[in-house]
């Protein structure tokens, strides 16, 4: 479970403006801040400076592993542990094993992707205090946690106001 942190949130009611503010914040050297929006805002990843996630690599490795394990499992079951002659075909008949191999590849890739997503996002994060209930409908926030580079409450508050935040909130924990 992700650790609770204190921090400062700036709130906007326009997605265009928060996009600009986020880009300025990134350019000012902020690294760990995040944007909280009720819907995906295009271009936000670049504006906040979020790097590409590592999930694709997890998916790939898990998929290859699943593929090998799936094929090996069927080889062991049908040709080693309990050989059964099916229609006079060889015990280890690859075409017959492809569908199961495919499914196990997908199963591994999917489960590990979701697992990696949870891990990288710091989920599950149960019941965090609410910054503003409107963040799930029509408002947008930039959240600066206390481990931000060169963090001080006053400095961040002043900067958020300078960026045009309509409201700035201190949070003891989020």
């Amino acid at each position: 479970m992700a650790k609770r942190q204190s921090g400062v949130a700036g709130i906007w009611s326009d997605d265009e403006k928060i996009l600009e503010a986020a880009a300025k914040m990134r350019d000012a050297g902020y690294k760990k801040f995040d944007a909280i929006t009720p819907f995906p805002v295009h271009g936000m990843e670049e504006a906040v400076g979020i790097k590409r996630s590592g999930i694709p690599y997890v998916t790939f490795v898990a998929g290859v592993t699943g593929c090998c394990l799936g094929l090996y499992m069927q080889y062991w079951m049908s040709a080693v542990s309990w050989p059964i002659n099916v229609g006079g075909k060889p015990m280890f008949s690859i075409p017959a094993f492809i569908p199961v191999t495919f499914e196990i590849t997908i199963l591994f890739a999917a489960l590990f992707s979701v697992g990696a997503m949870f891990f990288l996002n710091g989920l599950p994060k149960v019941d965090p205090p609410i910054i503003d209930p409107d963040l799930t409908s029509h408002k947008f926030a930039l959240w600066v946690p206390d481990d931000e580079v060169g963090y001080s409450v006053e400095k961040v508050e002043a900067f958020l106001k300078e960026l045009g935040a309509e409201e700035v909130k201190r949070m003891a924990e989020y």
């Binding site: 997605d15 265009e16 996009l19 805002v41 295009h42 271009g43 936000m44």
Partner: peptide, 8 residues
């Protein structure tokens, strides 16, 4: 979303 574009 996010960008306005003048179509003309």
């Amino acid at each position: 979303m996010g960008h306005s574009v003048t179509v003309d």
